[in-house]
Structures are given as C-alpha cells and as structure tokens.
Nucleic acid binder design. Structure first.
Lengths: 154, 154
DNA sequence: CTCCGTGCAAAAGGTTTGCACTGGT
DNA sequence: ACCAGTGCAAACCTTTTGCACGGAG
C-alpha cells in the first residue's frame, strides 16, 4: 500500500481517499469485479463515493500500473490487482473467468519482439472450457448478464 | 459454408439470409469486430438488416460453434471465426487485440481436469505488451472510444 | 402450416463528460 | 493557494427485449 503511495507521487497524482478505498476494495477480491461491483462494495466504507469516480479511479489505477483490466468475454470491464503471472479459466457457457495457478505454464519464454513490432511484456494463458457449475447444471444456462447470476458477494 | 448449413440443421435453427450474411462478414475479417462493426460492414450487402438482428445472429453463431467471443479488455464484445488454436497480442495502451500465430506455443498439454471441476477444452495465450502503433506514438494514446477512431459511418 | 427469426422501437445496462466545488500537495 | 479529483446529472454507447409480420422447415 505504501508502494501505491509512492506510485501516486511518482506519477504526480494526488493520493485521495477514494483512490485508496477503491484500490483496497479491489485488492481484497480475487474474482474479477466490474467497476460497479467495486462501487457496490464501497457503499459501506465510503458511502459518499460516486460511480463516475469509481470508473475514473479504476482507470487511474490501471494507468499507474497497480491494477489491470482483465480480458473478459462479458460486456462490462473487469479489473484485478494480481499482477504476478497467472492464468485464467474461461467458461464458454457462462463467461465466468477464474484465476488459475499453474506453475508449469509460468516459464514460457516470450517470443522475440520485432516480428510484428510488438513489445512483449508478459503473458497469461486462457483456458477455455466448462466450469464446474455449468458442467453440473448440464443444460446450458447460457445467461451472461448480471440479472441471471446471483451476486454471491464473496 | 456448407458446414455452416449442416450445423444449422443439426441445431435445428433456420438458415436465414441474415445468418449467412453475418457469418460471411465476420469470417472475412481478421481483426476482432464488434457487433456494431459487423452491422456497419453489412450496410452495403444487406441494408435492411437491423442491429438487434446482428446481435442475435452473432449469439446464435457462437451457440452453434461457428464463431467465438474474443476475450478483450474493451467494453464492446468482439467476435472471431478463427477456431483453430492461435494466440493473441493485447496492447496495454490501446486495448487492441491481434491474432498471433506461434506454433511453438500450440502444443501445451491441457491440465488434468478435475482439480477445479473445470472441463478443459482448448487454450490460447494472451501476450501483453505494446503494439507497434502505440510504441511509435511514444506518448500514451490511452483509451480511445469509437468516437475518436475513424468509422466508415455509412 | 407452424414456429422461429426478423425489424422496429424502446428499454436496460455500462461508461464517459461538463461543471462547480472540495481536498490533496 | 493551485490544480487535480470529486460529486452530480446528463449524455452516450452497447446490448437486450416486446411485439407483429414474414419466411424457413
């Protein structure tokens, strides 16, 4: 968290209550919350925060490098603070994305740059498949939207 | 394309002009168009098609397995018809996602299922980094909503 | 003939922006 | 004190839905 303060200073952006709160709310979670999820989870700690601020703060966090957008098939943008190399399980039925630790896949060597003019930085493997819930459900609960998923909230 | 017709029959869904057109428009492209991009690109060939239909058709195509949603950090859903194993370059500056062929990474063995109850099916590697355009631009042309990108716009 | 898909229009959801004020440095 | 960040409200973009009609099987 102190690292965060230093990053803010380094980037010349003020360290506000809201930024602190959003970062904490985000780093506590290991799912991949949407901006709105974060907004909701902050209602108790910081009720006066506004939704646009959450969006703005999340973008700041991504910009200074303490958070990241997760590649996600769903409609809403999702974020994470886990920056160490890790992989993802993507359910093709419900579009859920879960973290997946698998050290065996952590040591691939990055391709030589140049070819496409692309500067490689890191990678993560997306495994497509069917999650336990959907496999259990058998049928195809194709729903993707928030409406159909109950928000377990942790 | 005939394979597509058979898939439609197999899934018991009618083979309509719109479905044919959307699939063709999608498979012609190697970027990862949004539903709206497809809608736009169809204006010349099939001007009477409606936007909701494009969304519905794309979902059908995904359901019967001839197309796929691409995991993408951006806001709008993106699709592809390239179902063979391949990887992606994700630009952390502009959120662009490009296909990336690299046979050396095509032969990873899928993890044993079970562990998480996840049924593995396939995978693709997402390489994070900076694309040639953004590297060239030097600065940070971060978020670029459609507004800022040139559109054919009719 | 029956049923599903389509087109239209409107609603629902998600994200960004303009402006005046407050708070961080 | 200065400037950036915030809150509010409204705009904007994306995706879904209800309904009546028309075409595919």
């Amino acid at each position: 968290m102190t690292a965060f303060e230093q990053l803010c200073r380094a980037h010349g952006i003020p360290l506000t209550v809201q930024r602190r709160a959003v970062l904490e709310a985000l780093s506590v979670r290991d799912d991949h919350p949407t901006a709105d999820d974060i907004f909701a989870s902050l209602q108790s700690r910081l009720p006066e925060i506004s939704r646009p601020t959450v969006y703005r703060v999340l973008n700041s966090l991504v910009r200074i490098g303490v958070a990241r957008k997760v590649c996600h098939p769903g409609a809403a943008a999702r974020f994470e603070t886990k920056l160490e190399r890790h992989h993802h399980l993507v359910c093709v039925r419900c579009d859920k994305v879960m973290d997946f630790e698998h050290p065996a896949f952590d040591r691939l060597s990055l391709p030589d740059a140049g070819a496409h003019g692309f500067l490689f930085d890191d990678y993560s493997i997306h495994f497509r498949g069917v999650c336990a819930d959907c496999a259990k459900a058998g049928g195809r609960p194709r729903r993707t939207r928030k409406r159909a998923q109950q928000r377990s909230t942790t």
